[in-house]
């Protein structure tokens, strides 16, 4: 018996599926081989994870997850307009977009459908994108996640396309500024997810190349 043979049989060994003579041969090798002894400990740990009880996702869970992932742009148009018109129109400049989250819907726990907006990026310069997050009360420990795709990056973060952190949101408007740059011709997309135990918002920003 050698390490290669043990490697092939080690999962079966951990699961008690080897014949008695194969088991003895494996264990004799493992007794004198630290690497294989470690590997046996490793595979046993993975089997502990595997053997946890689980239940399939119900149709309700599936529909809930799908509803958070997709959105109807026509349905969102009026909502977008409302929030921009309700207090952020003054913040909009030619190359600056103010995106407003409404995280004040704590009376009805759950998730709002994603909202959407557009922002023009350039390969020539870094442009600050302002995201305005409005909360109607103090929200402690809100998680903010940014997911980027396409030919865009957040200046200073290089190739990282996922950022996530937690913060307390003050009542009123909380402003986040992201310096965004195009690094190619395709433009891209930014998904901003704002979650709190009582509420969740997903915002999709289409990042278009300013030609």
């Amino acid at each position: 018996m050698n390490c290669d043979l043990v490697a092939e049989q080690i999962k079966a060994l951990a699961e008690g599926e080897l014949q008695a003579d194969e088991k003895v041969a494996c264990m004799n090798h493992i007794a004198v081989c630290q690497d294989c002894a470690d590997a046996l400990r490793g595979v046993r740990a993975m089997l502990v994870v595997r053997d946890q009880a689980t239940v399939p996702g119900s149709e309700r869970v599936f529909n809930r997850v799908m509803s958070k992932t997709s959105y109807d742009p026509q349905q969102q148009a009026s909502r977008r307009g409302f929030w921009l018109g309700a207090g952020f129109s003054g913040a909009i400049a030619a190359s600056l977009l103010a995106v407003a989250f409404a995280l004040g819907l704590l009376g009805s726990p759950g998730v709002d459908a994603p909202q959407a907006a557009e922002f023009y990026v350039s390969t020539q310069e870094v442009r600050p994108m302002n995201i305005a997050i409005e909360a109607d009360q103090l929200l402690q420990g809100a998680e903010i996640s940014i997911l980027l795709s396409g030919d865009v990056e957040i200046d200073g973060f290089g190739q990282r396309n996922e950022l996530s952190w937690t913060d307390d949101l003050e009542p009123g408007v909380n402003q986040l500024t992201l310096p965004v740059r195009a690094i190619g011709e395709r433009g891209g997309q930014m998904v901003v997810r704002l979650s709190h135990p009582d509420s969740e918002q997903i915002f999709v920003v289409q990042l278009k190349l300013d030609s």
Binding site: I10, A37, R41, G42
Partner: peptide, 17 residues
């Protein structure tokens, strides 16, 4: 794949100890 899996299991086992 076999050697990577074996190495990773061994590393996991070492970490757990």
């Amino acid at each position: 794949l076999k050697s990577r899996l074996h190495r990773t299991r061994a590393r996991l086992g070492r970490l757990l100890s």
